[in-house]
Design a protein around this nucleic acid. Sequence first.
DNA 1: CAAGAGATCATCT
DNA 2: GATGATCTCTTGA
Length: 191
Amino acid sequence: MIKQFKLKRNFYKQPTLNVAKNLLGKYLVHKSGNKILSGKIVETEAYVGPKDLASHASRGRTPRTELMFGEAGHTYIYLIYGMYYCFNIVTENKDYPAAVLIRALEPAEGFIEKNKKLINGPGKLCREMKIDKNLNGADLTGNKIWIEDRGEGVSNSKIIANKRIGIDYAGKYKDKLWRFYIKNNKFISKK
DNA sequence: CAAGAGATCATCT
DNA sequence: GATGATCTCTTGA
């Protein structure tokens, strides 16, 4: 039996940049039907507060972004470019919009060998993990989808901070070093 | 190898 | 009516 425990609500209430860093090395687990799909988180991005022009929430509360203003520890999933889903985790306090985008996973359980190669981008992640709109707003302290600590901490010296991807429209916020990934991990989406 | 375009639709103006 | 927190395929050097 692997030593493991599900992260609790308090974990997600930390400052978003800390959550983004602390998620590295944790395991995302999705119970799809009676199958378990899981992978180790190796890359994240933070979207923080109402002024972050890269964040959907910078345009104010709308039906879609309402979740980002909600309680920490829930999912925020949306369709991008008409074809791919992105999986986010809501952080911090109610009424303060913030979330962490999970960009890449190292496959663990539930993948047949040929699928085991690449989960190195948010769109592919959702495709391979079978995450879609049905899980939008799900509670990560529930038993459908959650995150586990398996005792594989990542030391600070192995965490790289870099610019976020695909947000050239975000003005001065596009250069924030709010993307985090594990050094030398081969599942990272981009250098 | 790098660069560019197309796919495709929910959401917001 | 425009656009995007992406990915894959095609082109051309």
